[in-house]
């Protein structure tokens, strides 16, 4: 299972990259895309919209399932990945390249509370059982 060391993770299978400018880029993990199968549609949040940590803010759809994506941190959506409209399958190809949205976090503490790669790997192992 591909779990890059440099990223942070939410229990609900989002990855978060802490950018040098303090913003957070968010996507879904390789495990999430594998569980969903062929992704056919991504519903993205509106730029400028605000979400609390843990709030539903996007949906990733496959043929037989739809998964909600939760904001890993509270904040305002700064940008979304427009390429996913044409090519939702890019999440299947590389879940960590195909980001969903970028968020400006309200406070740093929530960022620090996210799982690291080891913690996320442990959670996945626990879910297996």
């Amino acid at each position: 299972m591909n779990i890059p060391l440099e990223l942070r993770y939410a229990k609900t299978h989002e990855w978060a990259r802490l950018e040098p400018d303090g913003t957070v880029t968010v996507g879904v993990t390789d495990h999430a895309q594998e569980m969903l199968g062929d992704i056919v549609f991504v519903e993205l949040p509106a730029v400028g919209k605000r979400f609390a940590a843990g709030a539903e803010c996007a949906v990733v759809e496959s043929v037989k399932a739809a998964a909600d994506v939760y904001a890993p941190v509270s904040g305002e959506v700064l940008a979304t990945n427009a390429d996913l409209g044409e090519k939702p399958q890019s999440i299947n190809a590389d879940a960590y390249a195909a980001w969903l949205f970028r968020i400006k976090p309200d406070r740093a503490s929530e960022r620090d509370a996210l799982l690291d790669a080891k913690g996320y790997a442990e959670q996945l192992a626990a879910e297996e059982h």
Partner: peptide, 12 residues
Amino acid sequence: LQAREQHIRRAK
């Protein structure tokens, strides 16, 4: 487009 429908999306 069945992800709109009750058998997949249930309460949503």
